[in-house]
Design a protein around this nucleic acid. Structure first.
Lengths: 344, 344
DNA sequence: GTCGTGGCTGTTAGCGGTAACATAGCAGCT
DNA sequence: AGCTGCTATGTTACCGCTAACAGCCACGAC
């Protein structure tokens, strides 16, 4: 039976071990391992060989302390389970890949206090940059961010005042835009279906923008329904059923995300409801999943990949010369009408 | 325009700053901040107040170096985009939450070399434990793991020899079991649809087990189809169409994951194919999404949450006394027949 | 011959904490 | 009073690595 991984007779290796094994000073070993400074080819070979054969793994903790440099970038996001943030992460990783920087992810579950503690934890490792979702933070969090003395990029949202830089879209505008499209298509009895999350500020802003645009033409939401937890697809079905039962004359359902929208779509198709004739549907995010549904749900992509990329570029300092910090990048999501809004 | 976060006049704070501000030694401050050792209530208050008002954030790098203790647990997984690993992470976080340990995630994209470099990077931060997916690693990776001198838990799979501990299911057995259920239900012309990923060893093992069980009753796969990249749901549709066109007499489709299985299901329903009468379907994973589909896809849950929990427990040392390491935990997935396999 | 000069290697002094031990003050006891 | 045994705090010596600088050597120019 395999024992715990070798209660190693020898303590874990240090530069000194490699230096002794190769007959040079620790400093020279350090230089070889970091490819820094001039080292003769012969010495380099000898050192590398020694390091390899010993199985030496440098101690970044000591290195970071000594050099005051850490190649870590903190990334703080609310959730991993809804398909939207993984794509942001992909964008971030892509860009960071060839910069020597490494993302470290923290998840807050949409809880401000949790964000605060994750942030504290991260800052205590002195990362060289920080990317976090949203513009709303506790006072303490904001104070830490300001103190940190490193580049900070707040992502996803730009309706507000960033601490440093921001990359995102205007959710208010996105909501407004969708409302306008819906109105233009002739729908009038509109309901909203979303998550019951007081801290999902972006969803809230979309709804605000949406209602603003409705108000502008004298409309108000006919109904609204919220959920929390569980399978979003299933919840989408259930909520849709509930809403349509309560108000059979509703002609449009605006969902706060694609997943529940997809559930609603499947429900309507099941029930033989004419989409988009009798009822129109729209979601938000532009998730890949929609490609495989029987009908294309109207949505608006949230530029997730691009947001991740640009945020990482700011952190990595890959910006056009002259730009120093405090950047505000607004991306513009495009409306994808799909097949669930009447064509006018 | 907001400038980069205050090119702080004062360098970043250290224990000394707090110690001066509160009139005690650095050591005492350190004790207060870590709740270690006896400190009088009055002193404690004074120190905390000073730390708070300065906005001091401890430097874990220095702390870790001095104490030779790091509260980080490395987690190395192949992907974040397929719904399966986020749930594992949830299980891990849940358990780690109240241990002072913190997960740090690395993603390999199913590339062994990438795993090797992520592993190297992680070990160089000297985490107190490591959780990684799968039992297959490069020689160099395996060597590093053995040298590391920390608890290692390989998760998801148990068909092989772990370096230290392992928590997972037998994918071979899962495949076999599904095949047996399918055969028992009377299906005979069976096809397999999966991902084109040479490094997804678990999918491969499921297929092996599946074919073994078929062979035992003299059957072989009628057809197989692979995909890579893109929207899994859509790919599921396309592959299903391709397979059914090639072999109209096929009566069962076994998918290597639920997402493509769901795509296949939607396709069949679209085409009015009698499921499970004419064609039966099954996937793998037991993802939440299935709850919202028009019909419940047969699947087998992969015990993801539980795998995460138990792996974290091993790392956190929360195991029944007497257990030292080198644990092997086999979980048993349950077959969920849903509505896409004929009832016998 | 002398003096740069550049290439390579070594020495020293921390980085910001913490373990381990030392010390001071004081109550309680004989 | 003298001793013991606490509790609350300070002192010292690192943890493993790197920045900064110092040293050494061969070589060519003058």
């Amino acid at each position: 039976m395999p024992r715990p991984p070798a209660p190693d007779p020898r303590r874990t290796l240090t530069l000194r071990d490699v230096s002794e094994a190769s007959g040079v000073s620790e400093m020279t070993v350090s230089r070889v391992l970091r490819n820094r400074g001039d080292v003769s080819g012969a010495t380099r070979e000898r050192v590398l060989e020694a390091a390899r054969s010993l199985g030496y793994v440098p101690n970044k903790i000591a290195g970071a302390l000594a050099s005051q440099r850490v190649n870590l970038v903190g990334v703080i996001i609310p959730s991993l389970s809804n398909m939207v943030f993984p794509e942001v992460l992909t964008g971030i990783s892509e860009v960071l890949e060839d910069t020597g920087l490494q993302p470290v992810v923290g998840v807050t579950n949409y809880l401000p206090e949790r964000e605060e503690s994750v942030l504290y934890e991260m800052l205590s490792w002195r990362p060289s940059g920080l990317i976090l979702a949203g513009l709303e933070h506790t006072d303490a969090s904001r104070a830490m961010l300001l103190q940190a003395g490193i580049p900070i990029v707040e992502i996803m949202d730009i309706d507000g005042t960033p601490v440093d830089s921001a990359v995102g879209i205007s959710h208010r505008r996105a909501g407004r835009q969708m409302a306008e499209a819906i109105i233009a298509a002739g729908y009038r009895k509109i309901a909203f279906l979303g998550t019951q999350m007081p801290n999902d500020h972006r969803a809230k802003k979309r709804l605000q923008g949406f209602e603003e645009a409705l108000a502008k033409v004298g409309l108000t939401l006919v109904d609204r329904e919220f959920y929390s937890g569980g399978s979003a697809l299933l919840k989408g079905r259930e909520m849709t059923e509930a809403v349509l039962k309560r108000n059979p004359d509703i002609d449009f359902l605006y969902y706060s995300n694609d997943m529940i929208g997809a559930g609603g779509l499947l429900y309507c198709l099941d029930k033989g409801i004419d989409v988009p004739g009798k009822v129109g549907l729209a979601g938000f995010n532009g998730v890949e999943l929609l490609d495989g549904l029987p009908r294309r749900l109207a949505t608006m992509d949230a530029c997730r990949l691009d947001i991740g990329r640009q945020a990482a570029e700011i952190i990595a300092g890959k910006r056009p010369a002259g730009v120093v910090g405090g950047e505000m990048v607004e991306l513009t999501p495009t409306l994808q009408p799909g097949d669930t809004i009447r064509r006018v």
